[in-house]
Design a binder for these strands. Structure first.
Lengths: 81, 81
DNA sequence: GTGTATTTGTTCGTATGTATC
DNA sequence: CGATACATACGAACAAATACA
């Protein structure tokens, strides 16, 4: 997967930059409802950030109701009616 | 026997997908009370999963009281009064 | 039954920048 | 000026569930 570069010094903190990218991909329908989002470990490697940062990004989307997380399985796009 | 396809990445883990299918068949009366359920070996081949996964599925139904297992005989549907 | 792998959950500690008192 | 609080980021370690061989 191809991820954009993160700028640690930008006004928008890294975890929000990552959340914005994920949000755009979700709204573009790039993640099928029965497939998990890229794992935390993958995003850590792809973005070159700490796990803490990735988890903040995902938590943001979860708070928005855009995704839900199943322990030990992954994070999935919320099915909308 | 015809079994549905399992999605290993879905939010519902494979062993629960398999349990759900067995449960539905049991409740539909597709397994006579005096006939054992399909063997572990058969289900392993039919679903294309590991034995461990099939065993978890059956254990779930056993915990629900829906079936009981007789060592060296097989797993049977519980008779309900 | 053992071993390995993946994935999320949790809890520490440390550091930095910014804002506030 | 110092002290404090907060948000952000990184690192490490372990737990628990799941899956496969």
């Amino acid at each position: 997967m191809d991820v954009p570069q993160i700028n640690p010094r930008a006004p928008e903190p890294p975890y929000r930059q990552i959340a914005a990218w994920l949000r755009a991909r979700i709204e573009a329908g790039d993640f099928p409802p029965d497939e998990p989002l890229p794992s935390e470990a993958y995003l850590v490697g792809a973005f070159g950030v700490a796990r803490d940062t990735v988890r903040r990004a995902v938590a943001l989307l979860r708070d928005e109701g855009l995704v839900y997380t199943v322990p030990q399985r992954g994070t999935y796009v919320t099915r909308r009616g």
